[in-house]
Design a protein around this nucleic acid. Sequence first.
DNA 1: GCCATCTGGTTGTTTATTAC
DNA 2: GTAATAAACAACCAGATGGC
Length: 307
Amino acid sequence: MELRHLYTFQTIIKEGSFLRAAEKLQYAQSTITLHIQQLEAELGVPLFARRGKRVQLTDAGHALYEQADLLVQKAQALQQTMADIVAGEAGHIRIGAIEPTASLRLPDLIVPFCLERPKLHLTLEVGSNRSVSERVADGSIDVGICMLPEASLDLTYEQLFMEPMAILLPASHQLAHAGNIQISDLADERLILKERGCGYRQMIETAFLQHGINPYSGIEIGNLEVLKNAVQRGLGIAIMPVASVNPPPEGTTLRTLQDVKLEVPVGLVYKVGQYARGRALNAMLELMRTSLRQHEESPLIDEAVGP
DNA sequence: GCCATCTGGTTGTTTATTAC
DNA sequence: GTAATAAACAACCAGATGGC
């Protein structure tokens, strides 16, 4: 059954004749007859009773008219949805992001973006660098915001900004008010690390091992909030994204290293060749580029860190 | 005057072939 | 294996004409 046959059928009823339906739909009159004949042949039942020059709906015609109305309405709604997707007003965007970007930076972008597009569906998944990049690689999410993914995943990486890191220590700690802090000063400290596979931890381990220091103290905490609380209660010190401890929790201090710049690159991650998606996703990517790259120009660390 | 049928031109679809 | 192209075929439409 073809939708245009149903349109023709509906138009005949609304206009009252085959001829006026043909004029309305800009078909030849013979086409209207053919449409109805095809519809009747397909359904195996006459839809109109021909009485000389007049035609009248049969019972089957009445039944079809009620159902056809629903079908045509559904089809029109579907066409409108497709038009909205083409225009970037609808569709489904799936984003994955690491912390603290997900909770501190993305809401400022996502909220106005979604309010402007009430028909848009958006899913934001928060995870580790590895899980976000793997989800992008297997197609579960459209785009990720994370650190450089593993080369084996064959993903495109577009750097947006550098995430500055700093040392969070209890305010009572001897290094809290020290002059310059060198990385060697942390050699004997209990450093609380994030979980294995976390990009922040990898950066910390690399920096420490380059200076001949083993950063592993035996304590790993996979959540930034719990990590902050642990430092606040004196369990040890931690190296954290500045954005996640700005301002530092009560009873803690944020310091930077004098000899090592602690920062990790964060960027957009997407599948090669998958870039040409819907307009809504492209608009979101453009917004992320514009807004998150701007962040690089106003680093949070200047406001948050001080002896 | 209105609808059905026939005929010819146009458009769209399918299939086979070729190139990458 | 996939995409592009061309040929054959089918479906569609419009105009002309006939029956009621």
